[in-house]
Amino acid sequence: MGDRGSAGERGAHGGDGGGAALIDAALGFVFPAALRAAALARVADHLADGPRAPAELAAATDTDPAALTRVLRLLATRGLFGEDEQGRFRLEAAGQALRSDVPGSVRDGVLMITDRTFWLPAGRMDHCLSTGGSVFEEIFTRPFFDHFAQDAKTAAVFHDGMAAMSGVENGPIAGSYDFPKTGTVVDVGGGQGGFLAAILRAGPGLSGVLYDRAHVVAGHRLADDAALAGRWSTAEGDFFTDVPKGDVVVLKRILHDWQDEQCVRLLRACRRALAPGGRILVVDAVIAPDNRPHQAKDLDLLMMASLVGRERTHEDFRAVLAEAGLRLTRVVPTPTVLSIVEAQAVDDA
């Protein structure tokens, strides 16, 4: 493809305006492709005990030595792996979370984000610009969540990936909000229960209900924590029509999946479930009204391409909550990319 080195050098000195930088940006998709390949091959797991030569590492991962070297060479430019003078590759500190056997592993999250259910629609974003809607159904013949309901393997990738992403953020988010000392927390669309578990660990006087579709709840992990015994239950159903009763109703990474009209239906169901004086906590990314980089803006385009929802601004949340008979009371920042949008029923204001 020509001399990229000289193009980059010209761009660094301003000789061709921003052309070289734009070419580098256009090539940016190659990095997540390489990251996915390494994650699938579990390369990080096989480097946990120290550096290995490409041939040895390839034998352990059932990959081609030359191809593996080329992939790791690129990933090394981002500090995930390193190469010594003998040509052996090592796992760097920045790549540790790619291992599957460490606390805070995001391997499953990487595999979810780079799965074809997000990757292919993202490559058709021009369709979204032309139509204003998702291209997912055109590619996969059915809407996003219907596709998962029919494809257990893909559904597992999604739910395991969400659990991995949530695993590193649940504790900090739960610790950012002053939950009541007692009462019931209902985690709506709570997946495998990681966030509910973090809330219950932080509030020993609380009980919780994990609420989701039957096939999702079946994979919950609440029973794995003996400290939570007797303080949780599960419930199955359609959150657009009915939600279990509670003092705090939590929606983490849920509203961004849906259009405003659907969010209003969901929020109204949550409002009906609230005990007097209760709160609804929407835990989502909040887009800042400026041009600073923020993961919310990347996630917003994934939502546009694969689902029907979007990330929202402070005012977007205020409007959709008001339509559901709720008042936005405050937005609580957290150490993660997500914020806690707190709301209460207008009748309780």
Rank of each mutant, 00 (worst) to 15 (best):
G2F: 12
D3H: 08
G5W: 08
E9G: 12
G17K: 13
L22C: 04
L22G: 12
I23V: 12
V30N: 06
F31K: 06
A33F: 07
A34V: 04
L35C: 10
R36L: 11
A39N: 04
A41P: 13
A41W: 10
R42S: 11
V43L: 02
A44C: 02
L47V: 06
A48D: 11
R52D: 08
E56R: 15
D62H: 08
P65N: 14
T69E: 15
T69Q: 15
R70D: 15
V71F: 00
V71R: 15
L75S: 00
T77V: 09
R78D: 13
G79D: 10
L80K: 09
Q86S: 15
G87P: 11
R88G: 12
F89P: 08
F89H: 09
L91H: 11
E92Q: 15
A93W: 06
G95V: 11
G95E: 05
Q96H: 13
D101P: 01
V102S: 01
P103R: 09
L111I: 05
T114P: 15
R116C: 01
R124E: 15
C128M: 07
C128N: 14
S130K: 14
S130C: 09
T131A: 07
G132S: 10
E138D: 14
E138F: 02
F140S: 10
F140I: 07
R142W: 04
D146W: 03
H147S: 11
H147G: 05
Q150A: 14
G161P: 08
A164G: 01
M165A: 12
V168E: 00
E169H: 02
N170Q: 05
I173A: 06
F179L: 11
F179H: 13
P180A: 00
K181V: 10
G183W: 01
G194P: 05
G194H: 02
F195G: 05
R201E: 12
A202E: 10
A202M: 08
A202W: 04
G208A: 05
V216I: 15
R221I: 00
D225T: 02
L228D: 05
L228G: 07
G230Y: 01
G230A: 06
E236W: 03
D238T: 09
D238M: 01
F239Q: 08
F240T: 06
F240D: 04
V243D: 06
V249T: 08
V249K: 04
V249Q: 01
L251C: 13
I254R: 04
H256E: 03
Q262P: 00
C263P: 10
R265L: 07
L267F: 03
A269K: 09
A269Q: 10
R272N: 07
R272T: 00
L274W: 03
L274N: 02
G278E: 08
R279L: 12
L281D: 10
V283Y: 13
D284M: 08
I287R: 14
N291W: 09
D298W: 14
L302K: 04
M303A: 02
M304R: 13
A305F: 11
S306N: 11
R310K: 13
R310M: 03
E311Q: 14
H314Y: 11
F317T: 06
R318F: 00
A322C: 03
V331W: 04
P333L: 04
V337Q: 11
L338A: 10
L338P: 02
I340Y: 06
V341F: 03
V341I: 15
E342Y: 08
A343R: 12
Q344L: 01
A345S: 09
D347V: 09
